[in-house]
Simulated scan of single mutants.
Amino acid sequence: MAKTATTAFVCQSCGEVHSKWSGKCAGCGEWNTLVEETVGGTPGGLAAPKAGTKRSGKTEFVALNAETETPARIVMGVEELDRVFGGGIVPSSATLIGGDPGIGKSTLLLQVAARLARNGVKTVYVSGEEAAAQIQERAKRLKVAESPVDLATETDLRKILSALKAAKPDFVVIDSIQTMWSDSLEAAPGSVSQVRACSQELTRWAKKSGAALVLVGHVTKEGNIAGPRVVEHMVDAVFYFEGERGHQFRILRAVKNRFGPTDEIGIFEMHQYGLAPAKEPSALFLSTDGDGEGGAAVYAAMEGSRPVLAEVQALVAKSAYGTPRRSVVGWDGGRLAMLLAVLEARCGISLSGMDV
């Protein structure tokens, strides 16, 4: 006998399921994130299958040493982007890209979609956040409005999958996964159940169709991609788009990549006509002040296969209190304490009464 659907309180930050409501999530410690959702009789919170339905078919096995043809990567034509992906995006793959609002995720992906479409790649761009006129206006500003990109503004997952099956594209952008919703669930769009179900269906379609799928995800105030962590396990690659709105540089960092390295970064520069690969990546990490200033040192850091020059700045002053302060930004506090201990023990520099 099938288990009937019930309701539970699901944390919208981490996906933890609670039997009753409480102000604080026991899983992640966030406040006021529990929302009542319908939980089906199947694992994962999906709706239970209707009574009387039968699924036929068999599973085919292949030998571990069987020769299979490896599809060629789709080269996107943006040097920094291809570097992070490991030489291009792989067909039948699902990629999740997250970043702060306004950081440039939609701008970069629209530029990539337009470039691929001009090179003969069947490209589809689906937006659930903006109207078609807004995207067309952005395309005119980026000088890519003449590219043959198939544009759709839809949030219904069933309609999107039907359109994708009919169009048979090679490259698909979903902007964003938090706006998609499935009519098989009663939860609201953006909830943990909807994000998980929509991601699973879109990823399954990408694996069967052979298309390269890119999902855009929102991030929380802590910088993590919003929704359940299981979404990051479903996809093949996870990238974070970092940077500040007032700064012209953006960094694309690989967190997970089944088809390439995870220590590579791509550095982009915001221009009038969109994002472009940075010509001098080291300029992001170096000060523009004069040379020879005290308290600053430049060293070469390896980011993947590329050396990047970075600057470390330090300030030491006498402490006005009994306990000196130790403050560090962009570095591990434990390593700072170890470095100060080495300076005192081996170099004879007394820092016990200094704020660092």
Score class of each variant (00 low, 15 high):
residue 247 H to D: 14
residue 207 K to A: 03
residue 356 V to G: 04
residue 303 E to G: 01
residue 54 K to Y: 06
residue 133 A to E: 13
residue 55 R to D: 04
residue 233 H to N: 04
residue 118 R to Y: 01
residue 216 V to G: 03
residue 331 W to E: 15
residue 108 L to I: 07
residue 72 A to W: 03
residue 248 Q to N: 13
residue 229 R to P: 10
residue 266 G to M: 00
residue 70 T to Y: 09
residue 256 K to P: 02
residue 298 V to M: 05
residue 127 S to Q: 03
residue 119 N to T: 11
residue 316 V to Y: 11
residue 301 A to L: 14
residue 47 A to H: 01
residue 73 R to P: 03
residue 179 T to L: 11
residue 73 R to Y: 10
residue 87 G to I: 08
residue 345 A to I: 01
residue 337 A to M: 15
residue 179 T to P: 09
residue 288 T to I: 05
residue 76 M to I: 15
residue 147 S to R: 00
residue 106 S to K: 05
residue 192 V to A: 11
residue 51 A to T: 10
residue 293 E to G: 09
residue 175 D to P: 10
residue 48 A to V: 07
residue 6 T to A: 13
residue 82 D to H: 12
residue 2 A to S: 14
residue 22 S to I: 06
residue 151 L to V: 00
residue 190 G to H: 04
residue 100 D to V: 07
residue 231 V to N: 13
residue 29 G to T: 03
residue 291 D to Q: 14
residue 182 S to R: 08
residue 82 D to S: 05
residue 261 P to G: 06
residue 246 G to P: 02
residue 188 A to E: 15
residue 180 M to W: 03
residue 47 A to T: 11
residue 73 R to H: 10
residue 4 T to Q: 12
residue 347 C to P: 02
residue 254 A to F: 00
residue 180 M to G: 11
residue 25 C to R: 06
residue 320 A to R: 15
residue 303 E to K: 06
residue 7 T to G: 04
residue 250 R to K: 04
residue 317 A to V: 15
residue 38 T to Q: 09
residue 102 G to I: 08
residue 178 Q to A: 12
residue 236 D to P: 06
residue 322 G to S: 12
residue 62 V to W: 02
residue 143 K to A: 11
residue 71 P to Q: 07
residue 290 G to C: 08
residue 160 I to A: 01
residue 64 L to S: 09
residue 194 Q to T: 10
residue 295 G to S: 09
residue 172 V to H: 04
residue 30 E to S: 15
residue 143 K to Q: 11
residue 62 V to L: 05
residue 224 N to H: 12
residue 348 G to R: 13
residue 147 S to Y: 03
residue 189 P to D: 12
residue 340 L to W: 08
residue 294 G to A: 14
residue 343 L to I: 08
residue 10 V to I: 15
residue 311 E to P: 06
residue 254 A to H: 02
residue 271 H to Y: 09
residue 119 N to F: 05
residue 195 V to H: 04
residue 176 S to V: 14
residue 107 T to R: 04
residue 218 H to Q: 13
residue 191 S to V: 10
residue 297 A to K: 12
residue 135 I to V: 07
residue 34 L to Y: 08
residue 205 W to C: 04
residue 55 R to M: 07
residue 101 P to R: 06
residue 353 G to T: 05
residue 294 G to D: 14
